[in-house]
């Protein structure tokens, strides 16, 4: 049985359609007009226990709204959510013990309490026993290096410190399912790397993780499953590696030669590849499909023709693929 299941999940936000100023507010009292915005549109999603899922989409696609629906924060306009078979509103207390949520944009730490005290309050809310609490804290400390920040008051934390403390706060009760919504937003590279390492460690312990990010580097090397949402609809749900195999198969070999070589000669030696001149007459780019040709084959062929001074292979990342999907250049299916 899937641990997270959503069927025909829909959320429509109703915004009052008010004119500007006092006049607009008064007019609204008499003629109530609303504007409906469909944030999430009939989403079906099921996540198995232990799965790591990347949930991506351009800004305003409905990522955060989905997370809020799946964690029971928002009541769906239509459709339903089940967490471990439970209704997130009706069984809120039970569900709360099983899920952990992190919103990168918003802290759950108490602004007037030191981090250690915030975590202790959460420990008591979730009823975590002292031994387990100490064990978890020690483990979080290994990856997140909490030691230095435990005594700092919430409002005085830097963004990176805050995010590390918030990660600990979201996981202190050992949830089975964790939603991470933009967990690396605004962090510098060093902290990002540490935080990503932490994701991998909780994934490896068998926690179900749904990661929402618009920094696509977060998802590489983290999850096997990729879900793409756009304008409230899921436009792709499948294996991350398969997407890469299918849409990120192009490789570009950049070469620099000692002497100019006619383009026709290069092209003739590499049938099936596209060869173009780059910024100087000694540099060429060779594009090929990695399933019809290997980089090694291309280099060997070229080395027979001329003296290669330098060469480099570019492989497109999942980032490029998804960016092409966002821009409408590519349709996955």
């Amino acid at each position: 049985m899937p641990i997270v299941e959503a069927r025909a999940l829909t959320k429509v936000f109703r915004r009052p359609d008010k004119g500007p100023g006092l006049a607009g507010s008064v007019k609204h009292l008499f003629a109530r007009r609303f504007q409906d915005k469909v944030a999430v549109d009939h989403i079906d999603l099921s996540i198995e226990a232990g799965e790591a899922v990347a949930y991506v989409g351009p800004n305003g696609a409905g990522k955060s709204t989905t997370v809020k629906l799946l964690s029971g924060i928002l009541v769906p306009t239509q459709g339903e959510v089940r967490i471990d078979g439970l209704h997130p509103q009706r069984d809120r207390m039970t569900v709360a013990h099983r899920i952990g949520v992190l919103f990168g944009q918003r802290t759950q730490l108490w602004w007037d309490l030191p981090v250690a005290e915030s975590l202790a309050v959460l420990r008591d809310i979730y009823g975590v026993d002292p031994a387990t609490y100490r064990k978890r804290l020690a483990r979080f400390d290994e990856v997140l290096e909490l030691g230095e920040i435990l005594t700092v008051v919430g409002r005085k934390l830097s963004l990176g410190q805050r995010m590390r403390a918030d990660l600990a706060a979201a996981l202190i009760h050992g949830p089975q399912v964790v939603y991470l919504d933009e967990p690396t937003i605004g962090l510098d590279l060093a902290v990002k790397e540490r935080v990503r390492e932490f994701f991998r460690s909780i994934r490896d312990e068998g926690t179900t993780v749904m990661l929402t990010s618009h920094d696509l580097a977060d998802i590489e090397g983290f999850c096997r499953r990729l879900v793409i949402i756009d304008e409230g609809r899921i436009i792709f749900d499948g294996d991350l590696e398969a997407v890469k195999d299918r849409y990120a198969r192009e490789r570009i070999l950049h070469i620099e030669t000692a002497r100019p070589v006619p383009l026709e000669t290069l092209r003739a030696s590499l049938p099936g590849a596209q060869v173009t001149v780059e910024d100087s007459p000694l540099r060429y780019a060779v594009r090929f499909d990695r399933f019809t040709m290997t980089a090694g084959h291309a280099v060997t062929a070229l080395a027979g023709l001329t003296d290669l001074v330098d060469f480099r292979v570019d492989e497109p990342s999942i980032e490029d693929v998804i960016r092409r999907v966002y821009s409408g250049e590519l349709v996955l299916g």
């Binding site: 809020k68 924060i73 809120r92 952990g100 949520v101 919103f103 918003r106 809310i125």
Partner: peptide, 12 residues
């Protein structure tokens, strides 16, 4: 300010 988000996911 959306502060209720975290309240809603805690068992209290």
């Amino acid at each position: 300010r959306g502060q209720l988000d975290y309240f809603l996911v805690r068992p209290y």
